[in-house]
Design a protein around this nucleic acid. Structure first.
Lengths: 231, 231
DNA sequence: GTCTATAAAAGGATAGAC
DNA sequence: GTCTATCCTTTTATAGAC
């Protein structure tokens, strides 16, 4: 109940938007509060009034995007588990619940691929403050998905499942953060613009990796996964 | 031909060692030259004498480790191509040439897992200076391996191959940089100490991902890849 | 809630003696 | 090659007027 009912955008949001934009482009340490407040057209002191410190601001920047994203993931996982009932849980469905919201959110969001890089960045940042934010935002997600993958791959030892999830997350994070690299190195032949195709590509890769050596694929699934599906 | 013949370790090496250690732990921006020279027990001005600037130092820190690493990778790839002659090139062999030296180097190197994280870090850093260093060190590697993978997977469109390499590199980089996360989240059940097992795990995952939907696996290879190989 | 002004610290870099 | 001393810039953070 503030006085901004008729204002365009509240200062707090302007700061968050500017910080998100700059941190996404340059990283946390490389962006000063002066750069953020200049970009947001607000006063330097406003940051400390609204967020207490740079650390507090950074925490909110990540939290604002990642909490709803992980909420979506958990809801999709819960829906998949309800649908499966007591029966088997499909690896691909679990993988999609984890990966698809992150990649797809970028094409729905107005700032495009920026958000994709944001979500990946927090995984790569190393400062103690960001680590705490990370643990806070991801612990529940990691535990529930690890359990789901273990259920979907009963033929594998739990440690092997955890490692494979680690590899799949690596593929996803790398895609979220470093996709301008693949564009550059392939002279534009690979682009992230076609979100649908990208989602199918990464899911296909990770499903195969998760199932490696596990003979539970039905012959139908194997056939469906063949070359005609690749463009 | 300097005067350090009888000295323990030349100043230049001490600075590089200290910088590598600290940058690995905290990242480039978070580490000051004062912290580096204190760790190395040398004078602050020595950095500018030997490397010109912080940027010059950082470049050398990465170059010192990554150039020989990539040299090893290219030699293994060349050997594989010689062995293949005019015949088909095996995806797994190419993948091993790319991934195994990076992961294995860590257990041979005295500072253990630090180097692993170093090699991955440069891929995630975003400053313009590091980007140039990256392009300088990786362009040849990327091009030769992409061509080799395309040859090993003739059934796939080149863009699809490039994407899959991107995903595999993501799994590798993530393993090099973030493996303390999996240790933490699994309460130690997953550890990076067993290098042999880790290499086999990640290779198995990536081979399956690279080959997804490609029916070129010989039945023997499929059988060999089954569950009995997983511990 | 927003602003100015300023504190207080830390950073990279360099000059010049030895 | 190495050291001390110092310059200059930038940074986060805060006090206090409005």
């Amino acid at each position: 109940m503030n006085s901004s009912t008729l204002m365009s955008v509240p200062t707090k949001e302007q700061i968050l938007d500017a910080a998100e934009r700059l941190i996404t482009e340059r990283g946390i340490d490389a962006v000063s509060l002066r750069a953020i407040t200049a970009e947001a057209n607000v006063n330097l002191a406003a940051v400390h009034y609204h967020f207490g410190s740079k650390e507090g601001l950074v925490h909110k920047v990540f939290e604002r995007r990642i909490r709803p994203l992980n909420q979506t993931r958990l809801e999709r996982l819960a829906a998949a588990e309800r649908a499966a009932g007591e029966g088997p849980l499909d690896v691909e469905v679990v993988l999609r619940a984890l990966i698809e919201p992150a990649i797809r959110l970028s094409s729905e969001h107005e700032r495009g691929s920026q958000l994709m890089r944001m979500c990946g960045r927090i995984y790569a940042e190393q400062s103690a403050a960001v680590q705490e934010t990370f643990d806070d935002l991801f612990r529940e997600l990691v535990e529930k998905f690890r359990a789901a993958f273990a259920r979907a791959l009963p033929g594998l030892p739990p440690a092997e499942v955890a490692w494979r999830v680690h590899f799949a997350v690596g593929a996803m994070v790398h895609t979220l953060t470093e996709s301008e690299k693949i564009k550059r190195f392939t002279d534009g032949a690979c682009d992230t613009a076609d979100t649908d195709a990208l989602v199918e590509r990464i899911i296909r890769f990770c499903v195969a990796g998760m199932r490696a050596g596990v003979s539970e694929q039905s012959p139908a699934a194997v056939a469906e996964n063949r070359l005609e599906a690749i463009q």
